[in-house]
Nucleic acid binder design. Structure first.
Lengths: 373, 373
DNA sequence: ACAATAAGCTCTGAGCAAGAGCAAAAGAAG
DNA sequence: CTTCTTTTGCTCTTGCTCAGAGCTTATTGT
């Protein structure tokens, strides 16, 4: 209905447990309007007022605003190359229920059935409280919600068939959604422009400006793995050459170690990192080479995009933990001098593997909020 | 005051001469609300209704909405390394008056005096009708409106002293503003995500998503010239290595031709292009090499940012006119396969050298509009 | 001249928002 | 314990905006 109601819900969603008085100040409304808003939203079963937190200060104690226990929920779905997971998430980001399973690289119809089964289960439990759906997938999602996931062999798949019952449906790339989540509830909440990079099978990511991810024309922004920061002689399966992504993943480590290309690139890379942690050669050298390539590329992106924080997820977080000095040195060496004084920090992602599904829930809530109030 | 008034002004600004009925449809309001809005904004001397355009169709003729001839104006200021220019721009983007001059690389205080003099001149002419100021400068502008222009030797300059009299003041990098202008009134009006690149002294640019430029944390986004798409052996004055920007400008041509570094890189490059146009060697080879580097880098940016249109300004437009095939071939070769089917077009910027000041006027108007209605 | 069509004008009622004034609940001071 | 101060919440009034219905105006087509 009204703008103010949506804004209030957004404030409560961002920081559940905010005091009523603080929320009014954030919205810039008087106590009168706050009363009206809170009353209306309580009657609509969207909010409840909790007991006051004893502040110790003078004055009439205020109450805290919390999501209503019987309020609306969003379905958050995360599909990876191996697994799927469905959560029912309430206002404020708390997960109320979850179902998960493995599909181990099955064809899309099988995955869809499994996910729809799980959604059906949650629907029996929660019924019409489920109001929106957000889906995270490992591939590019066009603006009309069609998925292309090259690695999984899913092509031109209509994602809306996953859940035809909610009238709000959003979907996005897993790395993009993880970036959104990091900037709203993770390590990048204070950054005005955050760059999130996630190395898993390939390198993806996103720039998030003021909580809004830069999504690209076809939803394919953030494919930083296919910027030519690498060796121009190496041809990437994507069709281009010199792609950065294939110079910093498990395949790159295998090439450097003269080993055959591993099937599961991610766990192979973790094994190499474990060897390197014991200072084993030639693993340590290979890891250092990859780390330097990673740091140099991050510097290029920071130069071009002017992020003030970089978060690393997936294998990137492992690399950062293993060889921070190598990454840092190559990073600083690649920065423009205007960024050298205070280089934007590189930190591990706070949400880890939960990032993509958390981002899906965030986007679903963002789309749902204007329709509630 | 109200949201709707601002929206109507924004519609008229975007397309001056829009019919009143179309504007109402765009805003999604009925004819009643339209009457009220137009009446109010006419009384406030913001709009006038012009004579109907004879449509030929049946029905009562409508009127067109035009900026009021005595309405508010914004000051648009463009400062380059050599020149300055001040325009008074009315709603809709038409320039009402202009003053310009050369400073030929003077220190900042001299440039500031010259610009302030010109602004004073316009102020005597237009008085309080000047309501906002937008400034384009060749360097990075921090969020607190301080300028660092390495090339010109202007460091940590407070731009707000240029015009302390208007209460709306915005400033930005020239390439970023040119990108904004291209996406609002230039070659990229239909693109949802446009990438604008401008080669002048160095390579700058911006991504514009739905008319909003991605500005970066410190206002330094768009320094794509300092992404490491070039030869890692070449050290850039910026401090990093392998910078793309110094591989596609006049300096790069001079290196390839074994000539000394030119003072005015831009006009030198144009001379080389003129020779190449007569198929003179070795100029043609050098131009082709630079064009290939340009095309390959553009492909990398399109991969990573998923733009659906690329506009080239400055020397980039000249290169595109001179050797489109070389740029196109390297571009397509560097694209990911998902972009190959319909590669985002590369087109010359429509606004040319007028881009930066037009962008400054756009940003000033965008900031002013919510305060008017 | 009359019908058809498109657009503008006026009036009314609903809903939202801002502000003033008052009431309530706590700590601080005597 | 009483009274004052501070902060917050509640209620009521007022003004504004907006949507919709019904009517008027201006043009084209027959």
């Amino acid at each position: 209905m009204t703008t103010r109601s949506t804004e209030l819900l957004r404030v409560v969603h961002r920081s559940p447990g905010v005091t009523r008085a603080d929320a009014a100040r954030l919205l810039g409304v008087g106590t009168g309007a706050a009363t009206e808003l809170v009353t209306k939203l309580s009657r609509a079963e969207l909010l409840i007022q909790g007991p006051a937190a004893p502040s110790g200060a003078r004055g009439r104690p205020t109450t805290v605003l919390l999501p209503h226990p019987d309020g609306p929920l969003v379905l958050a779905v995360a599909i990876t190359h191996e697994t799927w997971r469905v959560e029912a998430v309430q206002l404020g980001g708390t997960c109320a229920a979850e179902v998960e399973g493995r599909h181990a690289g099955a064809a899309w119809p099988q995955v869809r059935s499994a996910v729809r089964g799980a959604i059906g289960e949650l629907r029996r439990q929660y019924g019409p409280r489920l109001r929106a759906t957000g889906v995270s997938v490992p591939g590019t999602v066009s603006r009309d919600l069609r998925l292309d996931a090259v690695g999984a062999g899913w092509h031109d798949v209509d994602l809306t068939t996953l859940c035809p019952d909610t009238d709000v449906f959003v979907a996005g790339n897993d790395a993009t959604l993880a970036a959104t989540a990091e900037s709203r509830r993770g390590a990048a909440t204070d950054a005005s422009v955050a760059l999130h990079l996630r190395i898993e099978s390939g390198l993806g990511g996103a720039v998030v400006e003021d909580g809004r991810p830069v999504i690209g024309a076809r939803g394919a922004a953030g494919e930083f793995g296919h910027m030519p920061f690498g060796d121009p002689a190496v041809r990437c399966p994507c069709g281009a050459r010199g792609c950065w992504g294939i110079a910093v993943d498990g395949q790159a480590l295998a090439r450097l170690l003269d080993e055959p290309a591993p099937l599961d690139s991610f766990s192979y890379a973790r094994r190499v990192l474990a060897s390197a942690a014991r200072s084993a050669e030639p693993e340590l050298s290979a890891v250092r080479t990859v780390a330097a390539t990673l740091g140099r590329g991050i510097a290029g992106l920071v130069n071009g995009l002017d992020a003030d924080l970089v978060t690393l997820g997936g294998l990137g977080a492992d690399l950062l933990a293993a060889v921070p000095a190598e990454i840092g040195a190559a990073y600083r060496d690649g920065l423009m001098s205007i960024h050298r004084e205070s280089p934007p920090p590189i930190v591990p992602a706070a949400l880890g593997d939960h990032g993509p599904i958390a981002g899906a829930a965030e986007e679903a809530w963002s789309a749902l909020l204007p329709r509630l109030a």
